[in-house]
């Protein structure tokens, strides 16, 4: 199977603090991989580094887009990384709050469309067609996620769980080949979590992409993911199948403390 993401020796320092320490990770196309670890282990920092929101201090992040060849992406502008086909959601929801649900998704079509200033001013037929395609495609995605009823509401008026789903819709609109979900189930009730699980599986199967998720809900992680990476204090301490991970003494120690090991 083709490798989508290949991370080697990734480190990130904040001043004197080492938030990530020589982290490795590999994700193949069509895989669902989970990244777990206690709070403050550096999971979100890892996301920020591979999506280039932070510039890594050391190491290599290599990404293979659907059509092309592998390229080194650390230090690249975040929007270009998205353009290559890596898209994410945020742990602390970062929607465009005062725009409608539909517009939130439409913005994510930005990197797949071209209309410029002149086109906007003249409103040529080509531009109008592109606009309508953006609307149609975005609405389709909303329907896929199940948010189409709310399309004309402001994003900030959505219920919390729906806001998380909208973040996923928005990320999908950039047509990624690797989707990064940062605690997608946080703050959801069991029902919502169950339907989220279905959604993630559907996305992987129907839209053909690899998914990397950070999650604290262990039942979700164990049932969804094919492989799991575990972080603690900025280091990758274990990695393997859900079965292996649930028996790994280092992981148990990290989660439950010394006594249970």
């Amino acid at each position: 199977m083709a490798t989508v993401l290949n991370v080697q020796n990734l480190s990130k320092n904040f001043g004197g603090l080492r938030a990530l320490n020589e982290v490795d990770m590999r994700i193949d196309s069509g895989e669902i991989v989970a990244l777990i670890g206690p709070n403050g282990a550096g999971k979100t920092t890892f996301f920020n580094c591979i999506t280039s929101i932070y510039t890594p201090t050391e190491g290599e992040v290599r990404f293979t887009p659907k059509s092309g060849t592998e390229s080194r992406i650390n230090g690249m502008k975040p929007n270009l990384v998205t353009g290559l086909g890596m898209s994410r959601t945020f742990q602390n929801i970062r929607l465009f709050k005062n725009m409608t649900v539909l517009e939130n998704v439409m913005i994510a079509r930005h990197c797949r469309t071209k209309g410029g200033i002149l086109g906007a001013l003249l409103r040529t037929p080509a531009i109008r067609k592109e606009e309508q395609e953006i609307v149609d495609r975005s609405y389709e995605l909303l329907k896929y996620i199940g948010l189409h009823r709310y399309y004309n509401d402001l994003a900030c008026n959505l219920p919390y769980g729906e806001q998380r789903r909208l973040e996923i819709a928005r990320a999908l609109a950039t047509e990624p080949s690797l989707l990064l979900l940062d605690e997608p189930a946080a703050g959801m009730n069991p029902q919502e979590t169950a339907s989220l699980k279905q959604l993630v599986l559907r996305i992987r199967d129907e839209l053909d992409m690899a998914i990397l998720l950070i999650e604290h809900d262990m039942s979700m992680v164990m049932s969804l993911s094919e492989r799991i990476y575990v972080m603690e204090y900025g280091c990758m301490i274990a990695h393997g199948t859900p079965d292996e991970i649930s028996k790994d003494p280092r992981v148990i120690k990290a989660y439950l403390g010394e006594d249970h090991a």
């Binding site: 999506t51 929101i53 502008k77 975040p78 929007n79 998205t82 353009g83 898209s87 994410r88 945020f90 970062r94 929607l95 465009f96 709050k97 005062n98 725009m99 913005i107 994510a108 930005h110 990197c111 797949r112 928005r170 990320a171 950039t174």
Partner: peptide
């Protein structure tokens, strides 16, 4: 609305 989300969405 949000500069960081904006970049992350490819703008």
């Amino acid at each position: 609305e949000d500069e960081i989300a904006c970049q992350a969405m490819g703008i």
